[in-house]
């Protein structure tokens, strides 16, 4: 297990692709597609969404018992991004997948407890989007983060609103239009993650933050988070829906089709971010 807290109280396996564990007041959602760097394919997105919904039930049902949620990925990488391989030529399923991701991000944001992304290895494209939707994100210097979508002829529409809310519109514009990826320290300097610590300290840092959050008033934290979500437009369902449509439209276009076909032929394993051109 990646998370250091021992699993005593509850262990629920949602599916093979993602699991929800609750231990010592901290819920952990673990992406379990490590062999593909936790790239988000249809099944993984569905499994993630079910874990988020189950976590919401736990948090709301036992207010004050679950105090924080950690989002993590098994293996070497947090999440290498969207895996469009299976749906590249199927516009309908592609649209479903992007809508699924967009609404999962919204559900993650709505959770009434503070959320922490534990980012090791890589958080690329949609994977970086997951980290940015969390209230906190902690990474290490060797990790690679960023949004190389435009490098691949893809529009990062689904993740854009969340990045704007996190780092502001001006810096988000520069990051999304320039594409590419960055190391953990630069990601911390540019506000993409909240902290960058040595890789060996990652688990301890996440546990310490979760521990500190558990000392705050549960009701106060939930109200504060809801207030912040309202203030920064996080609950805007229309923009989340429009984003998925736009992203699907651009991916269905000839440019993206050509570059993604090339990419997957080159790298049959992993997500589109497997080989982002800088």
């Amino acid at each position: 297990m990646i998370h250091p807290l021992c699993c005593t109280t509850l262990d629920r396996t949602m599916t093979e692709r993602a699991s929800l564990t609750i231990a010592d007041g901290c819920a952990t959602i673990l992406l379990r597609r490590g062999e593909s760097r936790n790239a988000l394919d249809c099944d993984t997105i569905v499994a993630l969404r079910r874990c988020i919904d189950a976590a919401a039930v736990e948090c709301n049902g036992k207010r004050g018992v679950v105090r924080s949620l950690v989002l993590a990925g098994e293996g070497k990488s947090f999440c290498a991004g969207m895996d469009l391989k299976g749906v590249l030529h199927d516009a309908v399923r592609m649209g479903d997948m992007l809508r699924g991701l967009s609404s999962a991000l919204l559900a993650l944001r709505r959770l009434p407890v503070p959320t922490i992304a534990r980012v090791q290895g890589a958080a690329i494209g949609g994977g970086c989007g997951l980290a940015v939707v969390c209230d906190f994100a902690i990474t290490h210097p060797e990790a690679k983060l960023g949004y190389p979508e435009v490098d691949l002829g893809v529009c990062p529409a689904v993740v854009a609103p969340w990045l704007v809310r996190r780092i502001g519109a001006g810096p988000a514009r520069a990051m999304l239009l320039a594409g590419g990826t960055m190391g953990g320290e630069e990601a911390a300097a540019r506000g993409l993650v909240t902290r960058c610590v040595p890789a060996a300290d990652l688990d301890a840092e996440v546990a310490a933050l979760a521990g500190r959050l558990a000392t705050g008033g549960a009701e106060a934290l939930a109200c504060t988070k809801r207030m912040l979500n309202e203030l920064d437009g996080s609950l805007d369902e229309k923009i989340a829906a429009d984003a998925a449509e736009l992203s699907a439209r651009v991916i269905a276009g000839p440019e993206a089709q050509a570059s993604l076909t090339r990419l997957y032929a080159l790298k049959p394993q992993g997500g589109p971010a497997a080989n982002p051109a800088r």
Binding site: C155, V164, A172, G179, L246, V250, G253, E255, A256, S259
Partner: peptide, 22 residues
Amino acid sequence: ESLCAKSPHALRATKAWLNQVD
């Protein structure tokens, strides 16, 4: 130079979407 090497369509869509988002 690096931006010129990218897909104009994706850049255009991304900029237009950012204009809408912000």
